[in-house]
Amino acid sequence: MIRLEGITKQYHTGSKQVDALSGVDLTVARGEIFGVIGHSGAGKSTLLRSINLLERPSGGRVFVDGKELTALGAKQLQSERRRIGMIFQHFHLLSSATVADNIAFPLKLVKTPKAEIERKVSELLSLTGLEDHRHKYPSQLSGGQKQRVGIARALANDPQVLLCDEATSALDPQTTNSILNLLLDINRRFGLTIVLITHEMHVIRSICDRVAVIHGGRLVEQGPVTEVFLKPQHPVTREFIEQVTDPVELPSSGDEAARLLRLTFLGDSTYEPILSRAVQSTGVTFSILQGTISKLKDTPYGQLVVKLEGDGEAVKQTIETLRANGLDVEVL
């Protein structure tokens, strides 16, 4: 659906050149929710805006639904952009227009018939839970309500792609979750392809199918969220994982450390008593030092840090049994 090939972006400040993006290759499949996470200044906003050419790359090619946007003239590009909705961190609403008029604005720009505008606005007000706010102005709305208006406006032209520029970073945690649930519902209901950028791993964990980690204008890691979250390879990725996990304090004894394990459960095995069954068969005892059960989008997962005590051979057999039952076992 979306393909970026060798995207570079340079800015010039006086005689100095700043490389915002350096050779970025990225593919987003139709209908998936793809997240890009990075620290401030990493290049994630520049990357997102390169997709609809609000930021024209210095080099490389951008394809959306099989069309190379970087090869289009101004008029053709304007037409293709109508198929790409965008929502922003600070909403960008028209302060002197009502909620209904803000949603209708993109439709009026393309001279949509009045009856069709009314039908579409009513449909989007219902979709985003704003029916009772039709005649209100942005100053009368909460942050979450403003973002719902922004989402409704972005959907007015029935886009195939929705770009989300830090769409929840200005919101409190409860409102963030409601907006994420709305985006997930829209994705499932309409098969809309969503690309979002964020600096919050909670956002990635909640709704994304795949994720790319950007650092210094380069993608340093990418893959399915389950893989990147549970087995991070890059130090920056590990930093973001620590946002939503507690650090592990390991005993100082070398002998104990050799018997410390991190167990990762994924899918249905998360709720199975695999550890209990494994130690029953080997006579090893265990204590849990840390544990969590949660979800990565719809996939349940669990991680336990445990200390095993028993005969060395029995501990080894326990580890083999755990791995044979599909657990990822890391000896700490």
Rank of each mutant, 00 (worst) to 15 (best):
G6W: 03
T8K: 11
Y11Q: 09
Y11N: 01
K16P: 05
G23W: 08
D25W: 06
L26T: 05
T27G: 03
E32M: 03
E32Q: 08
H39K: 14
S40H: 00
S40A: 02
G41H: 12
G43W: 00
S45K: 09
L47D: 02
S50L: 01
I51G: 00
L54G: 08
G60V: 02
R61W: 05
V62R: 03
V62P: 01
V64P: 00
V64K: 02
L77Y: 09
L77N: 06
Q78E: 15
Q78R: 14
E80M: 09
R82F: 11
I84D: 01
G85D: 02
M86F: 14
L93T: 11
T98H: 09
A100W: 13
A100M: 09
P106H: 07
K108N: 14
L109K: 14
L109E: 15
K111D: 07
K114E: 13
E118S: 11
K120R: 14
K120Q: 14
S122D: 15
L125H: 13
S126K: 15
S126C: 09
S126I: 06
L127M: 13
G129H: 10
K136L: 12
K136Q: 12
S142V: 11
S142A: 10
Q147L: 10
Q147I: 08
I151V: 15
A156N: 04
D158C: 10
S169V: 12
D172R: 00
P173Q: 13
N187T: 13
R189Y: 00
G191V: 11
L196R: 05
L196W: 00
H202R: 12
V203F: 09
R205T: 10
S206P: 01
R210H: 13
V211A: 02
I214F: 04
L219P: 00
T226Q: 08
T226D: 07
E227N: 09
E227L: 03
P235W: 13
T237Y: 01
T245P: 02
P247I: 05
L250D: 04
P251M: 06
R259M: 02
R259Q: 14
F265S: 01
L266R: 12
G267M: 03
Y271M: 04
R277M: 06
G283M: 04
F286R: 05
Q290S: 09
Q290C: 01
I293Y: 11
L296W: 07
L296Y: 12
T299L: 06
P300K: 06
V306R: 07
G310D: 08
K316D: 14
E320C: 07
L327H: 10
L327Y: 06
D328R: 12
